[in-house]
Amino acid sequence: MSSLYLALALFLLLTLVAGLWRVGRGPTAADRMLAAQLFGTTAVAILLLLAEAMDSPGLRDVALVFALLAAITVVAFTRRAWQPERLPTSEPERLAERAGGAA
């Protein structure tokens, strides 16, 4: 059973690596942030699998803390760094924002 858990953890880690492409690509800030949020969920899954595979129950608490605090970064993002009052200031920014709908 342990090797199944490890294999699944490896698989999930690979999907996380693939998701990094979205962090680089954007185009809007929200896309990058969403990718990070998705990594959080994947990390919770990987940690739960590792807790079982490595027989280390403390890792479940790590997953619990990740799950508990997952919302804070996005709240900070929408309440601070991504506010509508500040209009995009340069042409590429405006293009990226509009293209968010059509890319």
Partner: peptide, 9 residues
């Protein structure tokens, strides 16, 4: 891509 379509913020 280093062209960096930079985003607000």
């Amino acid at each position: 891509d280093t062209r960096s379509t930079s985003v607000p913020g």
